[in-house]
Amino acid sequence: MREFLRPPGVLSEKDFKSRCISCGQCVGVCNYACIAMTPDSLFGLDTPKVFHRESPCFLCMKCSEICPTDALRDVPMEQSGMGVAVMDIKKCVDYQEENMIMCWTCYERCPMKGAAITLESGYIPTITDKCVGCGVCEYVCPIHAISTTPTRKLPPAAKTGAIPSKTTDSTNVAPSAISGTVPEEGAK
């Protein structure tokens, strides 16, 4: 099955499935047409899913407001609990030493701009522990350097808040700090 996230406000997969009655109101109210309904199992009811690689969620939170049975709890966007995005800094162009490209697309499009993704030192995109896993950054990243793991697939520790570093391999440092040199002026 295609990788999917649940819409914001899901407490746990078990709790969600016991409450979701397939009324489709979340789909109807979504401003971004990002919620799809597909069966969870062969004869299961259709439940809402966000296939974020095709159409991510921008955290308008209208779905969690309208859900009649609290399958999607009415929470503020900071508590959406959809998953966690992780950036591979071996791929992200801002972390490369040579032929560096400046790209802030993930930061620009993050619905929690400046909170879930920040620009370290003003220019290096970094995912923080406030990330709720909406999938937008993965969707817009032109290099596909970001991957979002849904909450239901996270190890238990992650769900309680002890999430490992959101940028793999290294913490958020400037490239030259990695190499230890201060940049020099060019041709002249």
Binding site: V93, E98, N99, M100, I101, M102, C103, W104, T105, P142, P183, G186, A187
Partner: peptide
């Protein structure tokens, strides 16, 4: 395309230029 290391940008480009 890549940035010209000898120009003022020292080989750096933004995403638009890179594409």
């Amino acid at each position: 395309i890549k940035g010209d290391p000898n120009n003022h940008n020292q080989g750096l480009l933004c995403l638009k230029g890179a594409m």
